[in-house]
Amino acid sequence: MLGILAMLVGIGCLICFVIVLIKLFQNEGALKGILGIICGLYTLVWGWMNADRLGIKNIMMIWTLLLIIQLVLNFVFGVAMIPGYPPNPAPVVP
């Protein structure tokens, strides 16, 4: 159940990301578009900074909400963003 929810949230995030990325390519050119692919955070920040001008405030709000849900799901259910990081955690000494 939680897996399906996480998957749906992930798909929602991807859709919002692609919508904002298309806007980024259209408005700022290919190079910043590529920068947006490489660094999703850049796309997120750019989207918020230009949300009113481009009329994508609803998309940005949905995306941010989905990101918060994703963070909460990961945090509550103990799944770190990157499994196995740090690579060699210090052993817990009683």
């Binding site: 992930g10 995030c13 991807l14 990301f17 692919i37 999703g40 955070l41 997120l44 990101l67 994703q70 963070l71 990961n74 945090f75 799944v79 770190a80 963003m81 990157i82 990081y85 740090p86 955690p89």
Partner: peptide, 9 residues
């Protein structure tokens, strides 16, 4: 090792 931004792709 806390959850942060995840690559949506």
């Amino acid at each position: 090792s806390l959850p942060g931004w995840e690559c949506p792709f």
